[in-house]
Amino acid sequence: MTDVVGHTGSALSVPPTVKSADAAPVVKRRRRRRDYGAPLGAVWLGLVVVGAITADWLPLADPNEIGNVFSATPGLGDHLLGTDILGRDILSRCVYGARISMAVGLGATALAMVVGVAFGMAAGYFRGAVDSTISLFVNFLMAFPPLMFLIALVAAMRPSLTNLVLGLALLGIPNFARIARANTIAFAEREFVTASKALGASPFRVLTRELLANVMLPVMSLMLVVMAALVVAEGSLSFLGLGVPPPTPSWGGMLADGRSQMNEHPHLVMIPGLFFFLTVFAFNRLGDWARGRIGRESSL
């Protein structure tokens, strides 16, 4: 009797962990590497969101109050993370700045998702002329370089939070429309959709009752990635002075303000930069995690 029987090909054989044929299975299970990125990301995003919402009630300094000490180093005095060149509290400005980032990240993404999914599902379900028209519109949106598009948009309209959200939402629509369309086409071929039509469901009912939830699963994982992209886009615009007009604090604006003093007072850039980086990173990690989960679920 051979001790080692590796039939899986090659010389790689199974370690003889099973002693007798009837013993309980003690063949080693392969371990999955634990991923701490996603939960930590969720904690960070939770803090940012809660901070942004409750900023007015938190024991923070007024973010726009000009102080005496200019460009104070972190840890000095009453300013935990120091002050900027105008002596404004950086922690407070970062927390209030999160409002803009989150408003844009969540608001613009949600808007883009609603419009994009509606268009994408209509295109994927009805095909034909509806599909051609919507696809043309989507391709039209995608043909613009994003930053150019935003600069043009801001130049044409007054820079305000609403306009910023609208502009960024417009940028996010193609992503959602495309993934919704592709998934609608795939699911529409499944027999449960035919079954629903056979029961007498109207197209609207088929789309909302049968297809929407199935299409939303892959859309959700994309949503986090789009949020990250839109937060970056908002940051870039604010950095260029095309975002929310001052003195409203925003991370991009803080980076731009601190740029001139970067050599003497690196914290002016480092701290808002860190907020920015952690937030975008957290969105992406969560997005990867969600994509993995949804992939597993749909393969069941």
Binding site: V4, V5, G6, H7, T8, G9, V14
Partner: peptide
């Protein structure tokens, strides 16, 4: 001998 990688052929098996 074309089993999936997750397959274990137990010792004592003979072909």
């Amino acid at each position: 001998k074309i089993l999936a990688p997750s397959a274990r052929v137990l010792p004592g098996s003979e072909i």
